[in-house]
Write a protein that binds this DNA or RNA. Sequence first.
DNA 1: AAAGCGGGGCT
DNA 2: AGCCCAGCTTT
Length: 310
Amino acid sequence: MPVPETAVPPSVDVPRLHDAVLDWFAVHARDLPWRSPDCPPWGVLVSEIMLQQTPVVRVLPRWHAWLERWPTPADLAAAPTADVLTAWDRLGYPRRALRLQEAARAIVERHGGEVPADPSALRALPGIGEYTAAAVSSFAFGLPETVVDTNVRRVIARAVGGQALPGRSLTRAEMRRAHALMPEDPDRAQAWNAGVMELGALVCTARSPACERCPLADACAWVAAGSPPPEQAPRGQAWAGTDRQVRGAVMAAVREHGRVAGDGLRAVVVAGGRLGAHRPGDAQWERCVAGLLADGLLARDDDGAFAFPS
DNA sequence: AAAGCGGGGCT
DNA sequence: AGCCCAGCTTT
């Protein structure tokens, strides 16, 4: 039986990290609406879903419109799905919009219309994984959950692990380390979660970190090692000519035109210009449309015309 | 563990 | 032309 690797090296002064991050956060935290004391848990939940793989600046206007239109889970649960997909606009990954509505319906049915505080109950909702469950529980309800997103992973990988970037996927060892770094006091735990994320978003960024402005620079294992470059080259994300581009163009066309005749959809999509020079072949076109129908993102009416599902 | 899934802005 | 972003689900 091998000796388990210690989650945090003994050389790391954990209380000092806490003070540094909490002091920095108290001064530099952005004034985001879902952090307001007036923001209900539903607003936090909506923000977390929208922020999955989508930057804050793009989420802000959609979030405000969303909360104004559907101020409670019951409001979203009762909305036509077509309206939900249209309001999602161009945030990307529109399946998130479907799942958010499914989650709202589950909240109405299983939780009396109130967003649950328990991470397990949150995790059981559609579209809510390990991160989002912990984030809502911590940020909306102040429970001392361990919140680990891409920002937290990067800050810990550098400051404690001495690595330039974390690996491709979140490991159990990383979760253990993040858990070991949590402050005991619940209020400080909540601020730590938000503060480390904010530090990763504003200072300890992926591409060109501003170490001269970082409150952890003196204690950072990566800086101490001379800030070596990342060992693992990132996996490139292809876009032009992919199914994702074609699916996105179809969604954009339906969003803009509403209902599109079945034999005209392809022409509308190509004319939309979102595909650039790419022209999908028959096989790709059929695959993408069939996929959107199967995903519940697209529907056909009795005349065979395409539209968002009602 | 890896692949699929959107879209835009920045280097 | 890449790379990145408050991930989740399925294989």
